[in-house]
Design a protein around this nucleic acid. Structure first.
Lengths: 273, 273
DNA sequence: CGAGGTGTTTCGGATAACCGAACACAAGAG
DNA sequence: CTCTTGTGTTCGGTTATCCGAAACACCTCG
């Protein structure tokens, strides 16, 4: 369906911080399309402001994308609601918090605040992606997806192993996601980087859908002694963001407001004090 | 050329802070295309992550745009180079500075820092657009465009009048742009809002091309007494950003480095003093 | 219950996008 | 200086793709 648009999107996705500039031939070779086609794509994308031409006939991303992104941020209250709460979290713990969404089966980091006694986490970064099967936010986000989606994602991306603790089998993942969904939060126990743990919790919009996840990352040696307090802290923070977005945790909401197929994910209790 | 891509871009442009959510029928009616076409466009854009579906079958902008925007900001050193200099400017003057680029014939504000004794400028805002023929940054950016481009822009957007001082005729504009280009900076003397003035200067990349403009906005009653100092301040700040981007001002560059073939701009040596 | 509004699907026909090859141009090596 | 090799760009004929109207399924509301 609309393969031309699909190709155009593929072209956009080529542009990365590592290679922010592309020429016609490079694009044609990389996407395995004739040069004339690549030319047409680049030219129209540039005419629409999604790309811009440099003097030498090469292309880079255009400022229209910045504009659209601002519109997105402006219309989505997620970041606006989460930031102050994340700041308080960082101030209180001195650790690092992440805010992430699921895009195309991967975790996209939307915000990252670093505490003063936190260790540098190089892997994550605003605007960066990581696989979802590791990391706390990733597991939270996957846990609230229909299982068939998760399967499709896993089949596409595989279960890449980062540390000995990384989940590498579908069965492990299924069990873990089930637990995460039921308990309402996830841990990352050195699954993406040795020595790094985190606790993560889901953020819901007014319809109850999980649209993002928040996490508090701490070094392993500080994680286990404070696991309980960490958990309640991140769960509470995420709940506050959800409430800011118009979601109010009511028992009966859970049973009724499910869309279409997913009768699952139903019984997720919650002892709101 | 690639009208499908063009339509897809039009769809993306529909999404604004004022109306961040669109349905199939609305899109079809607004763009005057059949419903099935709009459906296909929205569906594929959503599949590519440029849009996302809400539960009710409506669409909003997708997080991929955020990702692309971050890639853009990361790969373009403009914002990174300009921000500290803008901060110093704001700290010194207490006024408001803007950083803007030209996109599709309009001024797109990329950054805005407000000083403590500055007045609130509602019109401008990060990610917002304004016409280019008013405002200092707009005139700077237009002044360094080929005149034919300027004409096309004016024919498309018109010369909307905001105040009695707004430029409203092509001849006025031509003269003003000529002056701006020669003197290397522009003033906005209450042309967009009564009581608001600004001085603006161009920012160049390493090839000498003007890629952005910076401005210092002040209330009219503080503008005229300090006009000279303001001018040197903004010109100097913009020059520093340009140098940060790899541009070194040489006298003879000015005469030769006009666009089109640009056989020039090559020998941009540079004995940094 | 029915009317009006959604989003979604279908399918033949016309259109728009593909493709290969040829062109112009730049840079670099011999 | 020339030839080579790489660019980006242009041009039509062929073909598959996308357009478009209408019919469908669904929901909300009167």
């Amino acid at each position: 369906m609309l393969q031309t648009v699909r190709k155009a999107a593929s072209v956009l996705r080529l542009f990365t911080p590592q290679q922010p500039e592309w020429g016609v031939s490079e694009v044609a070779a990389t996407l395995d399309i004739p040069k004339s086609g690549a030319h047409a794509l680049l030219r129209t994308l540039a005419a629409e402001g999604l790309l811009q031409r440099t003097g030498t006939g090469r292309y880079r991303l255009g400022w229209t994308l910045f504009e659209l992104s601002q519109t997105l941020l402006d219309s989505s209250s997620l970041l606006r609601a989460a930031r102050p709460i994340m700041e308080r979290l960082v101030a209180g713990w001195g650790e690092t918090t992440h805010l992430a969404v699921l895009v195309d089966g991967q975790v996209l980091y939307v915000e990252k605040l670093q505490g003063d006694r936190a260790l540098e986490i190089v892997l994550s970064g605003v605007g960066k992606r990581l696989p979802a099967h590791c990391s706390g936010v990733g597991k939270v986000l996957l846990a609230h997806q229909p299982w068939e989606n998760v399967l499709r994602i896993v089949e596409t991306n595989g279960l890449v192993s980062f540390t000995p603790n990384t989940i590498t089998t579908v069965e492990q993942l299924r069990q873990e996601l089930e637990r995460v969904r039921q308990q309402g939060f996830a841990y990352d126990q050195e699954e993406v980087m040795v020595g790094l743990c985190c606790a993560a919790a889901p953020i819901r919009d007014e319809s109850g859908q999980v649209i993002a996840a928040m996490s508090l990352s701490v070094p392993a040696y500080r994680f286990y002694p404070n696991q309980q307090r960490l958990t309640t802290a991140i769960v509470d923070a995420a709940r506050r963001v959800s409430e800011e977005l118009g979601y109010y945790q009511e028992d009966w909401v859970w049973g009724s407001s499910r869309q279409s197929k997913s009768r699952s994910s139903g019984l997720a209790t919650s002892v709101r004090t």
